[in-house]
Design a protein around this nucleic acid. Structure first.
Length: 871
RNA sequence: GGGGAAUUAGCUCAGCUGGUUCAGAGCAUCUGCCUUACAAGCAGAGGGUCACUGGUUCGAAUCCAGUAUUCCCCACCA
C-alpha cells in the first residue's frame, strides 16, 4: 500500500487526542515522583481562542509534555475566570437584545441569567484548546466562581480585613458610567483624544472684570467649588481674597491660592471641581472646599447641577458650551489633544468620582512579592521585566477592590439600619458580631458590591488545589508551589504580582519559580492583533489549514521569549513543511527491504557520527529549555532533524534504488528515528504520536505512546568525531561546488585524489564521500596532480582531475583570489604578533592561537602558489 | 514629566564575563536541478561600516558617554 506523499494531519489529530484522553495520560495525582506543575492563566469565561491564547498555551503544552516525558508527574490545571465586569457587560448586552433591562431584574434573577449564559458559552475556549493538543488534566478544570474557589476568596477577604489590610472609605475612584462600577487604576486605559479647550469667563463679584479659565469639561462648572491661582502669579495679585460668580448658575465661589497651579498653562487660572477630578479633590481637601457631585452613576447630570438635569455628560458638555456662548461667557474655543481614561472592559470614558469603596493597603504586603523577584526566588523571563516590576512595586498604590456589579464574589460585609457595618462570612455571624458590639441588628443587609476579579485570580495557584481553605490537603502540599507560569507581560502587575502577594500571605512561599512572559502577537504592520481591528487570523482555521503541529511550530519559531511576535502565516508554512519533511523521512525508511548483509562502512561511519551529533544537540536543547528559550530549542531540534538526520545521515545509509538495507543499519536508523520522535513530541505531538505507532518501530503495547516516551537524556559526545565529519561534509560540498561551477551532471562520477599526509584519516570515510558526492574513486597521492582542480589548500588538499575540461584561466583567477585573501589575513595576524603590547598583554592561549593561524595561513599560501605554478 | 528597553543581512532574531566556532541562524531572494522519501523538495550562491559620534583598550558588535530613531510601562496640565 502506498503512503501519501504529504502528511495529512487531520486524521492523526482527532485520533490521538481522544486516545490520550481515554488512556488518562493527562491525568495527574500525587505520587512519589517529582511534581511539575503549571496552572493555566484562566482565560475569561466569555472568551474565544485568539492568537495570544494560542501562543501562550502552546508554550505551556510544550513545557508540560517535555516534563511528562522526563518522568516527572506533570500536572497542568486548566480553568476559566469569571471576569466580573467583562462577563456582566456581555450578559447585560445579551439581555438587552432580548428586550430585558438589567434594572428590571432582581439580583437573583440576573445571576440566574448569567449562570445560564456561562453554562452555555463558558466552555468554548477550553474546548478549543483541545484542538491545539493541550494536555491539561481536564478533570481538574476550575472556574473562579466555583463554590470552593468563591469561599476561598471570601475567606481571604476576611483574613486580610482582620490583618488590617482592608479598609473602607470615600475616595476618588475611576468610575465606569456604563458598567456603573468603580475600577482599579489598572483597568483604565489612557488614550489620546481630540477635545475642545473652552476658555470661559467668570465674572468677579462686585466688578466688571472677568477671569478666564480654560477647561475641557465645561459641563462641570456647576460643580465648581473655587478658582485657584498661583500665589506668585503677578497678573492676579489683585484678585486674592475675592470671589467670582459661576456662569449660568450664578453661584459665588472663592478664589484660592496654591502653587499647584501652573502659571504657564492655559490662563494660569484653574477651576477647582473636587467631585470630578482627582487633583481638584486633593486641592479641595487641602483648602476645605465644598464637594458638589453633579453626576449620577450612569453619567447623567443630577439635580445638583441645577440645569440640564438628566442630560448625558457629553450632550451636556455641548449644550453648556452653547449656553455659555449665548450668555457671552466664552472667550474662545481651541482644539486640544489630551489623554482621557477609558474602561478596559466597556470602553466608556472614565469619570473620576467620589464614592465609598473597599480598598486593600498595598505597601506592606507588596514588599515580600518584590523581594521574591529581586532575590531570584522567582525568575522573570526575560529578566528585563525585573526593573519595571521593581518600579511598579515600589510605587504601588492602594487597590480598589470593590465593584458595583452582581457577577462575582459578594463582599462579606453586613450593614444594620444605622449603616454601621461588620465583616462576617455569613449573616448569622454578622448578627452575632453586631450583638457583641452592642449594636442594632435591625434591617441587616449585605454589602451590594462584589470583589474585583483579580482578587480571586490572585489566589488561583492556591485555590485550584483548595490550598486556601485546606492547606493541609495532599494535592496542595504536593503540587504547590508550582513550577512555571506562562503569561502576558500586560498582566504582570494586575495578576502576577498579586499572586505573589497572596501566595506569600498564606504560605510564605512564592506560588511559582519561573515566570515566562510571552510577547504580544502583532501583525506584519506591528499592530496588536485584535478582534476589533480584524487583523487576527482565526487559530482554529489556521490549524485546519496548516495542521496543529505546523501552527505550533510556526508560533514558536517566531517568538523568542519576551519579544513581540510579528505573526505571518509563512511561519505556519514553515511548520507545515517541517512536519512534511519528517513524514517523508518516515516514508523513506518505511519503504526499505531488509537483508542480512553486513552494514557498509558508510553506514557505520554515519551511525557513529550521528550518535555523537544527536547527543550534542540534546545538550544544546537542554540548555535552551533551562533558559526557557523555546524558539531556540525548537530551532536546534529543527536543524538536527532536517540537516543532520535527513540531509546527511539518511543520505549516507540509504541503500541503492530497490536494494535492501543491511539489518544493522536499518535497526540503527529506526532507533535514531524513534529518539527523534521523542525529541519532537513536545513541539509536534500529533505527528510524533502517529509515527510512533508504526510497525517499523516494532510492537507497541496500548500504553506505549510518544506522549509518555522517555525524553532523550544528556549523554557524552565526542567532539573530535563531529569535527572530522564536518571536514568530510566540506569535502563533499566542494565536490558539488565544482560540479555546479562546471555544469557537470551529478550523474557523472568524478575521480578524486587526496594528499596521503592529510590531517585526518580520510580512508575511513572514502565510502561516505563516494556515496554522496558521486565520486568514481578516491586515490591517495604523495604529490600534486598537475593541472587538476584543487580545494582545501594545505595538508588536506584534494584534487579533482578532470579530463580536458579544466579552464586554466578561471582556475588561475580563483587561486589568485584565494591567495590574496590569505595574504591579507596573514598580514593582520602578523601585525598582531609583532605588536609587543599585544604579545605582552593578551592571554598566552590567545597569542598561541594567533601563531597557529599564522602558520596555517602560510602553509596554505605555499600550496596554492605551487598549484598556480603547476597550471 | 518619571522609569525601562531596543537599534546586527530584505524580514524575524542569536551573538554569555571584550580576542577565529565573530560578523551568525531561520525565512525570503537568486542560479541550477521533476536525482528512484519529500518541488511543502535537492544542490549551490549572493546579501551587513553590527544606528551615529567620541572615549577606554594592544584589541570593541560587545564596555563607557553623548546624539538620533523606535517601542513599552507609569503618571499626567486644567
Amino acid at each position: 500500500m502506498s503512503i501519501a506523499k504529504t502528511y495529512n494531519p487531520k486524521e492523526a489529530e482527532d485520533k490521538w487526542y481522544s486516545y490520550w484522553m481515554e488512556n488518562g495520560f493527562f491525568r495527574s495525582t500525587p505520587d512519589e515522583r517529582e511534581p511539575y506543575t503549571i496552572v493555566m492563566p484562566p482565560p475569561n469565561v466569555t472568551g474565544v481562542l485568539h492568537m495570544g491564547h494560542m501562543l501562550n498555551n502552546t508554550i505551556q503544552d510544550v513545557l508540560i509534555r517535555r516534563a511528562r516525558m522526563q518522568g516527572k508527574n506533570a500536572c497542568w490545571v486548566p480553568g476559566t475566570d469569571h471576569a466580573s465586569i467583562a462577563t456582566e457587560a456581555k450578559v447585560v448586552a445579551m439581555l438587552k437584545e432580548q428586550g430585558i433591562d438589567k434594572k428590571s431584574l432582581s439580583r437573583e434573577d440576573f445571576l440566574a441569567h448569567a449562570w445560564e449564559w456561562k453554562e452555555k458559552y463558558g466552555g468554548i475556549i477550553l474546548k478549543q484548546l483541545e484542538k491545539l493538543g493541550a494536555s491539561c488534566d481536564w478533570e481538574r478544570t476550575k472556574f473562579t466562581m466555583d463554590a470552593d474557589l468563591s469561599e476561598s476568596v471570601i475567606d481571604t477577604f476576611i483574613k486580610f480585613y482582620e490583618a488590617g489590610y482592608i479598609y473602607r472609605g470615600v475616595r476618588m475612584v475611576n468610575w465606569d458610567p456604563q458598567g456603573k462600577t468603580a475600577l482599579s487604576d489598572e483597568e483604565v486605559i489612557r488614550k489620546e483624544v481630540n477635545q475642545k479647550l473652552y476658555y470661559i469667563r467668570y465674572q468677579i463679584k462686585d466688578s466688571n472684570e472677568y477671569l478666564v479659565i480654560a477647561t475641557t469639561r465645561p459641563e462641570t462648572i456647576m460643580a465648581d467649588a473655587a478658582i485657584c491661582i498661583n500665589p506668585h502669579d503677578e497678573r492676579y495679585q489683585h484678585l486674592k481674597g475675592k470671589t467670582v460668580i459661576v456662569p449660568l448658575v450664578n453661584r459665588e465661589i472663592p478664589i484660592i491660592e496654591d502653587e499647584y497651579v501652573e502659571m504657564e498653562f492655559g490662563t494660569g487660572c484653574l477651576k477647582v471641581t473636587p467631585a470630578h477630578d482627582l487633583n481638584d479633590y486633593e486641592l479641595g481637601q487641602k483648602h476645605n472646599l465644598e464637594v458638589i457631585d453633579i453626576l449620577n452613576d450612569d453619567g447623567t447630570l443630577n439635580e445638583k447641577a441645577l440645569i440640564l438635569i438628566g442630560e448625558d455628560r457629553f450632550i451636556a458638555r455641548k449644550k453648556i458650551g452653547k449656553l455659555l456662548d449665548e450668555a457671552g461667557n466664552i472667550e474662545k474655543v481651541e482644539d486640544y489633544k489630551s489623554q482621557v481614561g477609558f474602561s478596559e472592559r466597556t470602553d466608556a470614558a472614565i469619570e473620576p468620582k467620589l464614592s465609598m469603596q473597599w480598598f486593600c493597603k498595598m505597601e506592606k504586603i507588596a514588599k515580600p512579592a518584590l523581594d521574591y523577584v529581586l532575590s531570584g526566588e522567582v525568575n522573570l523571563f526575560p529578566d528585563k521585566f525585573t526593573s519595571s516590576y521593581k518600579h511598579w512595586m515600589e510605587n504601588v498604590k492602594d487597590w480598589c477592590i470593590s465593584r458595583q456589579l452582581w457577577w462575582g464574589q459578594r463582599i462579606p460585609a453586613f450593614f444594620n439600619e444605622k449603616n454601621e457595618w461588620v465583616v462576617a462570612k455569613t449573616e448569622a455571624e454578622a448578627l452575632a458580631k453586631f450583638e457583641e458590639q452592642g449594636k442594632s441588628t435591625a434591617g441587616i443587609r449585605q454589602e451590594e458590591g462584589v470583589l474585583d476579579t483579580w482578587f480571586s485570580s490572585g489566589l488561583w495557584p492556591m485555590s485550584v488545589f483548595d490550598g486556601v481553605r485546606n492547606p493541609e490537603n495532599e494535592d496542595f502540599k504536593y503540587y504547590y508551589p508550582t513550577n512555571d507560569l506562562v503569561t502576558a507581560p500586560e498582566i504582570l502587575f494586575f495578576w502576577v504580582a498579586r499572586m505573589m502577594i497572596m501566595g506569600h500571605e498564606y504560605t510564605e512561599k512564592a506560588p511559582f519559580k519561573n515566570v515566562y512572559l510571552t510577547g504580544i502577537v502583532r501583525d506584519k504592520l506591528g499592530r496588536k492583533m485584535s478582534k476589533s481591528l480584524g487583523n487576527s487570523p482565526d487559530p482554529i482555521q489556521l490549524m485546519e489549514e496548516y495542521g496543529t503541529d505546523g501552527v505550533r511550530v510556526g508560533m514558536l519559531l517566531a517568538s523568542p521569549a519576551g519579544n513581540d511576535l510579528m505573526f505571518d502565516v509563512s511561519y505556519c508554512e514553515q511548520g507545515r513543511n517541517f512536519a512534511n519533511k519528517i513524514w517523508n523521512a518516515f516514508r523513506l525508511v518505511k519503504g526499505w527491504e531488509v537483508s542480512d548483509e553486513a552494514a557498509s562502512s558508510a553506514q557505520e561511519s554515519a551511525a557513529i557520527w550521528f550518535e555523537n551529533r544527536f547527543n550534542q544537540a540534546v545538550v544544546e536543547i537542554e540548555e535552551h529549555f533551562n533558559n526557557l528559550r523555546l524558539s531556540d530549542a525548537l530551532m536546534a531540534t529543527y536543524k538536527l532533524v532536517w540537516d543532520d538526520f535527513c540531509a546527511w545521515y539518511l543520505e549516507l545509509v540509504k541503500p541503492a534504488y530497490q536494494q535492501p538495507i543491511a539489518r544493522a543499519a536499518y535497526e540503527q536508523t529506526t532507533a535514531f528515528f524513534e529518539r527523534i520522535l521523542a525529541l519532537i513530541h513536545p513541539f509536534m505531538p500529533f505527528l510524533s504520536e502517529e509515527l510512533w505507532h508504526d510497525e517499523i518501530f516494532g510492537e507497541r503495547t496500548e500504553k506505549d505512546c510518544a506522549i509518555v516516551a522517555e525524553y532523550p537524556k544528556i549523554n557524552p559526545f565526542d567532539e573530535v568525531i563531529i569535527k572530522e565529519f564536518a571536514l568530510i561534509k566540506q569535502v563533499i560540498s566542494e565536490v558539488r561546488n565544482i560540479r555546479n561551477a562546471k555544469g557537470i551532471s551529478p550523474k557523472v562520477a568524478l575521480p578524486l585524489a587526496i594528499n596521503e599526509a592529510a590531517s585526518i584519516d580520510y580512508k575511513k570515510f572514502v565510502d561516505c564521500i563516494t556515496k554522496i558526492a558521486n565520486v568514481s574513486e578516491i586515490t591517495f597521492v604523495t604529490e600534486k596532480i598537475a593541472g587538476a582542480t584543487s580545494f582545501l589548500a594545505g595538508k588536506d588538499e584534494f584534487y579533482v582531475a578532470l579530463e580536458n575540461n579544466i579552464d586554466v584561466e578561471a582556475e588561475k583567477e580563483r587561486i589568485t583570489k584565494e591567495i590574496d585573501y590569505l595574504q591579507g589575513f596573514l598580514k593582520a595576524v602578523s601585525a598582531k604578533l609583532t605588536n609587543e603590547r599585544f604579545v605582552q598583554n593578551a592571554k598566552p592561549e590567545i597569542v598561541q592561537n594567533e601563531v597557529n593561524k599564522k602558520e596555517d595561513a602560510e602553509a596554505k599560501i605555499k600550496t596554492l602558489q605551487e598549484n598556480l605554478a603547476s597550471l
